[in-house]
């Protein structure tokens, strides 16, 4: 192709390319905008404070009260401690297709909370209770890694979320559900 020397032609080409770039950027922004609007994506907003130094003495985050519990009215609440360097409990069963409220807090440093394959994702900041509400659609195991560097053992800090089909969902007399694996 012969080089374009005509000033007008040059401007036309420049304009065309500028339009293509603008179009591409517009499409990308539209995808982000529309999908976040349609799927209601936004950071979980819940401002509730707790004293990080005495979390270990609290009733709600006592050892026996951690994990999945189903209230008499059927509401499912999961309580989790993110600490250096583990999540307590390390396996979390949840019923498939039911709204679940997850409450996490940290007694030490900032941890990350993310359930792979879902939109559950938040920071766990000491001093605050992070809350995530979600519904798990498909049965199976999800990895739940800590995604905020929290110290030397950070890379070993993960838990499992086990989505159990309604038919197999079981709780004990106190409404607690546990994974049948011992980790």
């Amino acid at each position: 192709m012969a080089p374009i020397t005509n000033e007008q032609e040059l401007q036309k080409t420049e304009f065309r390319w500028a339009m293509i770039v603008t179009g591409a950027v517009t499409v990308l922004f539209a995808v982000i905008g529309i999908s976040s609007f349609v799927m209601a994506l936004h950071p979980p907003s819940h401002v509730e404070s707790i004293d990080p130094a005495t979390v270990s003495q609290s009733k709600e985050f006592a050892e026996s009260n951690l994990g999945t519990s189903v209230d008499p009215d059927g509401a499912v609440t999961v309580r989790i401690i993110a600490t250096q360097f583990a999540f307590v409990p390390r396996c979390i069963p949840v019923p498939q297709g039911k709204p679940v409220t997850i409450r996490v807090t940290s007694p030490d440093v900032i941890h990350g909370f993310l359930i792979a394959g879902t939109n559950a994702n938040t920071m766990v900041v000491p001093g605050y209770v992070a809350e995530v509400r979600t519904v798990f659609g498909t049965a199976g195991d999800h990895l739940m890694p800590c995604h905020e560097f929290c110290g030397l053992g950070h890379s070993e800090m993960w838990a499992l979320v086990r989505v159990v089909p309604q038919a197999q969902w079981q709780t004990d007399a106190d409404g607690k559900a546990r994974c049948d694996i011992s980790r």
Partner: peptide, 24 residues
């Protein structure tokens, strides 16, 4: 809640707290 106003959060009921284990 979206505005982050304190006191607006809905804290789920916690029947398990009544029989919470003693701290470690």
């Amino acid at each position: 809640r979206a505005l982050g106003l304190p006191g607006s959060e809905k804290i789920p009921p916690d029947p398990g707290a009544a029989k919470a284990s003693a701290p470690a």
